[in-house]
């Protein structure tokens, strides 16, 4: 295979995954610049090891490399005060402020920008090992099997992490939301 053919084959597999790659990296690193660096590095790595790619789901393959690259980046750039996830306690999640969401129209289906920001903050507050599973499931709509491939964990672990991530979010999002709504009514 010539270099050109190899690149062409690589781009057919990897480039359609660029949005998914960036989205995952962005949620894991927390900002655009670092996400871009991670994605670029992941694509170079993937290209280097492309001969090891034996077909199959290109998205899972590419995202597993992006995820590994992002976690390496997180290790290197661990900010002081970052809580390791074993010690993470859902009660430390930033509390939803019912007062900041005026109950103008409960029927309104569009999510207000304040809510959007708040939801983003809640997800960002999840430990990375829960955030990746949640993002792959909720935003990428991946089946458990593919998430397991991307994260290199058994399907059972995908399920338990997803359940915990959602429980934390529900506690911080839906319940205060309801309380806020009933206060307003």
């Amino acid at each position: 295979m010539t270099d050109i053919e190899r690149k062409a084959r690589f781009e057919r597999v990897a480039l359609p995954q660029l949005d998914a790659a960036f989205n995952l990296a962005r949620w894991l690193t927390g900002n655009d610049r670092d996400a871009e660096d991670v994605v670029q590095e992941a694509y170079l790595r993937a290209f280097r090891y492309f001969d090891g790619y034996r077909g199959g789901d290109g998205r899972s393959w590419m995202l597993s490399i992006v995820r590994r690259t992002a976690f390496t980046w997180l290790e290197r750039n661990r900010r002081p005060g970052t809580v390791p996830f074993e010690e993470f306690d859902a009660s430390e999640m930033p509390a939803a402020d019912g007062g900041s969401a005026p109950p103008d129209d409960p029927e309104q289906s569009a999510i207000r920008s304040a809510d959007r920001r708040r939801l983003g903050e809640l997800i960002a507050a999840l430990p990375a090992q829960f955030r990746d599973v949640l993002v792959l499931r909720e935003l990428e709509d991946m089946p458990y099997r593919d998430i397991a491939t991307v994260c290199g964990i058994p399907v059972g672990t995908v399920m338990s992490r997803l359940a915990r991530a959602r429980a934390m979010l529900r506690q911080a999002w839906i319940r205060p939301q309801r309380k806020g709504l009933s206060h307003g009514l």
């Binding site: 660029l18 960036f22 989205n23 670029q40 289906s109 999510i111 983003g120």
Partner: peptide, 25 residues
């Protein structure tokens, strides 16, 4: 929660030019 996430959690699409930058790299 799933509805709130799909409506409210941002899907960060790759920025303009990233594909080109990767191509050059």
């Amino acid at each position: 929660l799933a509805a709130a996430l799909s409506a409210g959690a941002t899907y960060h699409r790759a920025p303009e030019g990233l594909a080109e930058r990767i191509g050059a790299a």
